[in-house]
Simulated assay, not measured.
Amino acid sequence: MGSLDREQTIESYTMKFLVLSLAGILALPSVAMANPHDVFGVYAVEDGTSHIEIADCGDGTPCGKVVWIDPESIESGLAPEEVTSPATGEPVLGLTILHGLRQARNDWRGGTIYSPSVDRTYGARIRQLDSGLLEVKGCIGPICQTQLWTSVER
């Protein structure tokens, strides 16, 4: 192989490498990365005992309400429609438990989340993860407990 052939071969490989590299770079934006603010949908809470629908509160911010309660998780003799909040006596089914959030750089925060099972309200932060799970944090001051909610069909 002559010197000229070797240079042409190297040049050919270099050009192929550059073209494939450019194609790879251009394909990167198409990789599925979740928008952390795209939190709207229906989710099963971490222990599977209820489903929460997160929808627009009417001002573009997310609100979450209980849309399903697992009958197996309720005291015997009660139907899901009969479960009430200890604080208000309101039915838990249809109860808005998540509201008051504002959009931050990488999540929604500043709102509150109510846990009917323990009758407590916590500071709330939520965001969509790349895995498709919804990260939900209930906080008392700087200390937070995280749950991962799974998207479900309604």
Rank of each mutant, 00 (worst) to 15 (best):
89 G>D: 09
50 S>C: 14
48 G>Y: 10
99 H>C: 15
92 V>N: 03
99 H>I: 07
82 E>G: 08
70 D>P: 03
44 A>T: 09
103 Q>V: 11
87 A>N: 13
51 H>P: 07
100 G>N: 01
57 C>I: 02
69 I>K: 00
77 G>W: 11
64 G>W: 00
95 L>K: 11
66 V>S: 01
42 V>K: 03
43 Y>F: 11
39 V>T: 13
74 I>L: 15
96 T>K: 06
42 V>G: 06
34 A>C: 09
101 L>C: 06
41 G>K: 03
48 G>H: 12
76 S>D: 15
45 V>D: 00
93 L>S: 05
89 G>C: 14
65 K>R: 10
91 P>Y: 07
60 G>K: 08
70 D>T: 01
79 A>I: 15
88 T>E: 07
80 P>L: 15
98 L>R: 02
63 C>W: 04
98 L>D: 07
52 I>Y: 00
98 L>C: 02
45 V>Q: 06
100 G>Q: 01
66 V>E: 01
64 G>I: 00
42 V>T: 12
51 H>G: 03
66 V>M: 10
44 A>Y: 01
82 E>D: 12
40 F>C: 09
42 V>M: 10
71 P>Y: 12
84 T>D: 11
105 R>Y: 14
79 A>C: 11
75 E>R: 11
105 R>P: 08
38 D>E: 15
77 G>N: 09
65 K>Y: 04
77 G>Q: 09
46 E>C: 02
85 S>W: 08
105 R>S: 05
43 Y>R: 02
69 I>M: 02
100 G>L: 05
39 V>Y: 04
62 P>C: 12
94 G>N: 09
90 E>D: 13
53 E>V: 08
81 E>P: 08
93 L>C: 08
40 F>L: 12
35 N>V: 14
88 T>N: 04
102 R>Q: 13
45 V>I: 14
89 G>H: 05
72 E>C: 13
45 V>S: 00
52 I>C: 03
91 P>G: 11
41 G>P: 02
39 V>G: 08
92 V>A: 02
51 H>N: 13
104 A>I: 05
91 P>K: 13
80 P>N: 12
66 V>L: 07
60 G>N: 11
49 T>E: 03
89 G>S: 15
68 W>D: 05
88 T>Q: 15
80 P>C: 12
50 S>L: 01
48 G>R: 06
97 I>Y: 05
72 E>R: 10
37 H>V: 12
100 G>P: 00
58 G>K: 15
51 H>R: 14
42 V>W: 09
94 G>L: 06
58 G>Q: 11
